[in-house]
């Protein structure tokens, strides 16, 4: 069974193909209106999410399919003590494909091991969020026309920021990508990513705590929110939540063709005063998410028909 658990489940060629299909969907929406007629997507969100869940649901509805599911663990049988394995065994009998968000890391592997239909990881704790990464890649491609030869700044919570982890893995497959990792000391990227990806592939990267010092070197700036739900200690969250705020003043030093991304929702890390700047691509990015998820649903349903 082909699933999407982590970005490494798709080869570079498959990712390029997904981008191609997404672009075709953007230009020819009518062509796809009935591609999933009679198919059901289950959206199992054990952790609340507005954007990702609605984006998945909108994607399936735009393909002519139907949607069922729940939007928090409180409204699922987990509340009664059911294991994830049992929930998945039951739901895979009611649906053709499952998109799942779960607060625990590695939960999608358990889901995939117990499902008779493909599983899409819609985020597992601070671990992986591959569909976000694929839509990030689509956004970069749409905004800048290629996926190689960039200096990419990743800023904010790089420790628990799953979107950042998956994006590093994905971009490291493309030629001449350099990373500038901007975070407070407490929220640096995990060691395994440095060892397994950056060091192993000899990818150039620097770690810094200062956004202003490096913003002029960046082609892409990926801002992230410091997520309250990832902290076991409230005090530490309060201390770190507003460390980076991207505003007009900081942006003055940036390149004219900088592309600013953010997985959203944002809190204070991007000032609303820059929303109208043409370099701010984050709302377009959210829209591309729907098209990429349409392409992913189509691919996994087709692969598993074989």
């Amino acid at each position: 069974m082909k699933n999407l658990i982590g970005i490494e489940d798709f080869s570079k060629e498959e990712i390029n193909e997904l981008i191609k299909v997404s672009k075709d969907i953007i230009s020819n929406k009518e062509k796809y209106l009935e591609k999933c007629k009679g198919k059901i997507l289950a959206t199992l969100f054990f952790e609340p999410s507005t954007r990702t869940r609605l984006s998945f649901e909108s994607a399936m509805l735009s393909l002519g399919g139907s949607v069922l599911g729940f939007s928090s663990a409180d409204s699922s049988s987990t509340q009664k003590g059911e294991t994830l394995a049992d929930t998945i065994k039951v739901v895979s009998g009611y649906s053709d494909i499952i998109a799942m968000r779960h607060p625990k890391e590695g939960a999608p592997i358990v889901a995939a091991n117990n499902s008779s239909v493909p599983i899409i990881n819609a985020g597992d704790g601070g671990h992986n969020h591959p569909t976000q990464t694929l839509l990030d890649l689509l956004t970069i491609y749409q905004e800048k026309g290629r996926l190689d030869n960039y200096t990419v700044g990743l800023c904010g919570d790089l420790k628990f920021g799953r979107t950042v982890h998956s994006l590093i893995v994905a971009l490291s497959r493309y030629e001449n990508i350099k990373f500038v990792l901007i975070s407070p000391n407490e929220l640096k990227i995990p060691e395994y990513l440095k060892q397994d990806i950056l060091d192993k592939k000899n990818i150039e990267y620097i770690e810094t705590e200062n956004l202003e010092e490096c913003i002029n070197k960046l082609d892409i700036l990926y801002m992230t929110r410091v997520q309250k739900e990832r902290f076991l200690n409230e005090e530490e969250y309060v201390r770190l939540k507003d460390v980076y705020i991207l505003d007009k003043q900081k942006l003055e030093k940036a390149k004219e063709d900088l592309c600013i991304l953010h997985p959203l929702p944002r809190v204070n890390e991007i000032s609303t005063e820059i929303d109208d700047d043409p370099r701010a691509a984050y709302f377009r990015q959210a829209e591309y998410g729907k098209y990429m998820r349409m392409a992913i649903i189509l691919k996994l349903l087709k692969e598993n028909e074989k």
Partner: peptide, 13 residues
């Protein structure tokens, strides 16, 4: 030992 890992809550895993 990761308290955020699915192995910390899923029975029988």
């Amino acid at each position: 030992k990761n308290p955020r890992c699915i192995t910390s809550v899923e029975r029988g895993l």
